[in-house]
């Protein structure tokens, strides 16, 4: 890819420029070699802040936390946050789980959702 930062590293730590077509063909590229890292997301958050969008920055910081959890867990949390999928207790448990997995910003989001859902009848 032209214009890529040679220092850029994937989630696995592998430099992106080392992810070549030949390496893919030989089966030497893992999913984590093509996955964005929390550090890169943090750097993007800083750029968003600089360009007048603190909310986008906050989202990218939540994303930096989610970068560490599996696709299945991401899908699971999303499903639990949809209307009337979870009880208040389940949402609290989900927030705790996120907290333990190093996702405090997402945990706070879930707790806030729980409080509003209870008031607006959006819990199960």
């Amino acid at each position: 890819m032209t214009g890529a930062d040679p220092r850029l590293r994937a989630y696995s730590g592998r430099p992106v420029e080392a992810v070549t077509l030949e390496a893919v063909r030989r089966g030497e590229v893992s999913a984590d070699d093509l996955r964005i890292s929390p550090e890169t997301l943090e750097a993007q958050a800083v750029a968003s802040e600089r360009h007048g969008n603190p909310q986008l920055a906050a989202n990218l910081r939540r994303a930096a936390e989610l970068a560490r959890i599996s696709d299945e867990d991401v899908m699971r949390v999303y499903e639990a946050l949809r209307p009337r999928r979870a009880t208040a207790g389940e949402l609290s448990a989900l927030a705790r789980w996120l907290e333990e997995r190093g996702c405090p910003r997402n945990a706070a989001l879930v707790r806030q959702a729980r409080d509003v859902y209870v008031r607006r009848g959006l819990t199960r």
Partner: peptide, 19 residues
């Protein structure tokens, strides 16, 4: 539409978390 602002906000973060 089977979502809330919070589920949609989480989804927004989920997409970003995969770049």
């Amino acid at each position: 539409g089977d979502d809330t602002p919070w589920s949609k906000a989480f989804l927004t973060g989920a997409y970003a978390s995969r770049g």
